[in-house]
Design a protein around this nucleic acid. Structure first.
Length: 842
DNA sequence: CCTGTTAATTTTTTT
DNA sequence: AATTAACAGG
């Protein structure tokens, strides 16, 4: 399947086409940067020689091996600015790919501040977002309708389960999770069911998988759905099958920039090769030491083999670190050095030595959390040099560790924000509403229909649904079509009335959508109301007050999120209109937006974006996994849970490759810190319902002694270092403790610890969901929000980022109100109780 | 057809 | 520990 990628010939001519000759400036510089007095160019002023060489590079594919904190984002943005402003490249000929939406947003913003609104015409985004954009335009060539929907992992599991039933494979013999993983990795290698079946050969297990895979893919196709991996793989197939389409994008994207190249999987690698093949203007930035996504198919070989893949390429190393102190950098270097699979780089810095790394050996997970909270409070209240919360990041290997930290921070009154975990859009109530939107915009989406036909309860249960399924299979029509014709089928007579109500609900909502008379936010509100979802929760208020309240709040939140989304979209469009020259290629944005288009755009955003992507201005300590911290930096970093079996994880202990990946993860964690680094490990830890006894992580022990200041015990030796009893590893099996005589003494030790008067940290009771608690802690500390009843049209308010604005409109709903506010920069909408606004007295 | 109960399973990391 | 799936009874 790589064949066609290879057949794309790699010409070495980087010669710019006519359209690229710069206005006035330098055709000289393209052969030799020295001929041009680059030192005087303000665009290059803040770059070191290597960075400058990278920005100016021309004529061959370029690999930049950029160590952590070496200014790679700056190099990419300056490169884009350089291309546009000095080389006269049309921004719409630039495709810049990042890995997270957050990184993409940051890049867009930085580029805009350099070159202004023209940046809008460049394509900047994640692989998934960019390829999706391409797929939407050409999906009919692959047999998908333009309005296909994207399944998330949960929906995916639903479909898989059915596929397994069809293939008569019990999910007991083969866990769904594994099937999901297998299919995903096959797709990332561009292997689709047919080929998978061929490769299976006589392997019975593989044959079964192939069958499941086949059913799964069929189901997706029938429902006009793609999963995440399809987005990449189908784009590859599109390019392979439709040379004219490929050729169009090759021509269009004369300049291709890829960030975090070390995290590309095979499909992404092929995409890069295909797109760059014609003009060869490939600009790739990566750091093999920061490759941490092999579990989702990232292939480290892509960056290690770059020289072979692009024989005439140039390699530039960025080794000067601008982020961390000497101490932190030395620690990170000494850890990563122990990996064998790497391009050798040694980061250096001119920065000062800085504080030693603080290592704390905690008693248990609560003690650990309390220690972190105390340290944070100390840092934030230091007279004269008080830090603000957003300069602090708390990082951990697995999301499960966030819980203890949460309660400790709460007890200390520290505002925090948790990233990851449950996405807002993943909540049941939200997904239900999204399923309504999907069915409304795409009536053949059976998956959406099945999700909502009985949500809220309409008395259409499994029996009826089974009947519907049978008829649909017989008639070869989507479920919704069968529902519509329910009267024609006698077997449905029992449920026909209920089905008709449902069909009318959807048809009515479709009509409202196509009439296009109300704003999108209100449309979403109408969906929540008419569907009965809201009412269902209101009815539950007496029975489950806590849950129902959150759900109602979430639905309201979704309404205002939809409003904000619309206004942001319209603002963008407005800006584009002011630059007619940008419009040529933006065909999808030149028309006035209809309600249906907004709905589709919204569904798309919800599918690809996580909460992490929203830039957050509030001043709170960040809690996140190391994975999500990549690309970020904090003045002070706490790395918690530095225990063997947790980090590195238990399942990676016996594979050298996996240990190396974990070590890279450690490297990423350490290099997030600018000035101060705290590392904590617990002697014993209650996790997943079991107490385990843990050694200090090897990564903490690999840091040279002279860089570390130890508190509460040594990093070396076992967990009971006082009497140096050697216990090889912890045990997570409770029956071990019960039955194994050899284990009983562990419990004695454990109780001795607590009986010895060392009280474990206070364990706060569980209160509500993580989401809720985050919100509470913020509102308690910040007093955000306004009471709309005390506001009037014309009042002035201040927003931290947007400045002062005037209230243009107040739209009350469900005890709150949406404020429409005109700022200098444009009109924005806020939910009054949630807004970060303060009133300005005039 | 729905509800409340038990039993079982889960834990890497994310677009 | 906590979420989720299966299951029996109303």
């Amino acid at each position: 399947m790589t064949k066609s990628a290879d057949s794309g010939q790699l010409k070495a001519d980087g010669a710019p086409g006519g359209r690229e000759s710069a206005p006035g400036l330098l055709s000289v510089a393209k052969t030799a940067g020295e001929l041009y007095d680059s030192a005087a160019d303000p665009l290059l002023a803040n770059l070191n020689p290597e960075q400058r060489r990278a920005v100016l590079h021309e004529g061959s594919p370029l690999l930049i091996l950029a160590g952590a904190g070496s200014g790679k984002t700056r190099v990419i943005t300056q490169r884009i600015a350089w291309l546009v402003q000095r080389r006269g490249v049309d921004p719409e000929r630039i495709l810049a790919i990042t890995f997270t939406n957050k990184a993409a947003n940051e890049m867009k913003e930085r580029v805009s501040s350099q070159i202004g609104l023209a940046a809008r015409a460049a394509w900047v985004g994640t692989f998934h977002a960019m390829m999706l954009r391409i797929l939407r335009r050409h999906s009919h060539l692959l047999g998908y309708d333009r309005s296909f929907s994207i399944l998330d992992t949960v929906d995916q599991r639903r479909v898989l389960k059915e596929a397994m039933e069809k293939a008569k494979v019990s999910d007991k013999t083969v866990p769904i999770r594994q099937v999901q993983q297998q299919i995903s990795s096959a797709k990332n290698k561009l292997i689709y069911p047919e080929e998978y079946a061929k490769e299976a050969g006589k392997d019975l297990q593989k044959q079964q998988l192939a069958e499941i895979y086949n059913y799964y893919q069929e189901e997706l196709r029938q429902n006009n759905c793609l999963d995440f991996d399809d987005i990449l793989a189908l784009t590859v197939f599109l390019f392979e099958q439709q040379p004219q389409v490929l050729s169009y994008y090759q021509e269009r994207f004369r300049h291709l920039l890829v960030d975090e190249y070390q995290d590309t999987n095979h499909a992404q690698y092929v995409l890069v090769r295909l797109l760059a093949a014609k003009h060869n203007n490939l600009f790739v930035v990566g750091d093999d030491d920061q490759s941490i996504y092999s579990f989702r198919g990232a292939n480290l070989m892509n960056i290690l083999d770059f020289r072979q893949d692009f024989p005439n390429c140039t390699v530039i190393r960025l080794e000067q670190n601008y982020r961390s102190t000497r101490t932190i950098l030395a620690a990170a270097n000494s850890v990563i050095c122990l990996n064998e699979q790497r391009n050798h780089k040694t980061l250096w810095t001119e920065a000062e030595e800085g504080d030693k790394i603080n290592f704390y050996r905690a008693l248990d997970q609560n003690d650990e959390a309390v220690y972190v909270a105390n340290q944070i409070r100390r840092l934030m209240s230091k007279s004269g040099a008080a830090m603000s919360g957003n300069e602090i990041g708390v990082l951990y290997r697995v999301n499960a560790l966030a819980r203890n930290l949460e309660s400790a921070l709460q007890d200390h009154g520290i505002a925090y924000r948790i990233y990851g975990g449950m996405r807002f859009y993943d909540r049941k109530e939200i997904k239900d509403i999204m399923a309504y939107l999907r069915l409304i915009t795409e009536p053949s989406d059976d998956l959406a229909l099945r999700r909502i036909i009985n949500s809220p309860r309409r008395g259409i249960g499994a029996t009826t649904l089974e009947l519907l399924n049978q008829i649909a299979a017989r008639e070869q029509q989507p479920l919704f079509e069968i529902c519509r014709r329910a009267e024609e089928f006698p077997e449905l007579s029992f449920a026909a009335g209920k089905i008709r109500l449902f069909v009318h609900l959807i048809l009515d909502l479709q009509q409202v959508l196509s009439r296009d008379e109300i704003e999108f936010g209100f449309y979403v509100k109408q969906v929540t109301d008419d569907s009965g979802l809201k009412q269902e929760q209101t009815a539950l208020l007496d029975k489950l007050p806590l849950e129902a309240t959150t759900r109602i709040q979430n639905m309201d939140e979704l309404v205002s999120d939809a409003m904000e989304f619309e206004s942001r979209l319209t603002d963008e469009l407005e800006e584009l209109r002011q630059y007619p020259e940008l419009q040529a290629e933006q065909e999808d944005l030149t028309m006035p937006l209809t309600l249906a288009q907004i709905a589709e755009a919204y569904l798309e955003r919800v599918a690809l974006y996580s909460d992490l992507d929203q830039a957050d201005e509030s001043d709170a300590v960040s809690l996140m996994t190391i994975h999500s911290a990549k690309g970020l930096e904090f003045d002070t970093v706490f790395l918690v849970g530095a225990n063997e079996g947790l980090f590195p994880g238990e399942q990676s202990l016996y594979s050298r490759e996996e240990i190396e990946e974990e070590r890279r993860l450690a490297y990423v964690a350490l290099t997030r810190a600018k000035r101060r680094l705290f590392i904590t490990a617990a002697r014993q830890r209650l996790l997943y319902g079991q107490t385990m006894y843990q050694k200090v992580s090897r990564f903490a022990r690999e840091i040279p002694d002279d860089l570390v200041e130890e508190v509460g015990g040594s990093r070396h030796g076992d967990q009971f270092d006082a009497d140096s009893v050697s216990i090889a590893t912890w045990s997570r099996r409770s029956e071990d403790a019960r039955y194994g005589a050899g284990y009983s003494f562990r419990r004695d030790f454990a109780s001795a610890d607590t009986a010895g008067g060392i009280a474990p940290g206070t364990s706060a009771g569980r209160r509500g969901t993580a989401f809720e608690r985050t919100k509470n802690s913020l509102s308690r500390d910040e007093k955000r929000g306004l009471d709309y009843q005390q506001l009037a049209v014309g009042d002035l308010v201040r927003h931290e980022r947007l400045g002062i604005g005037a209230i243009e409109k107040i739209v009350p709903f469900s005890g709150d109100a949406i404020l429409v506010i005109r700022f200098k920069s444009g009109t924005k909408r806020f939910k009054a109780s949630m807004s970060l606004l303060t009133r300005v007295e005039d």
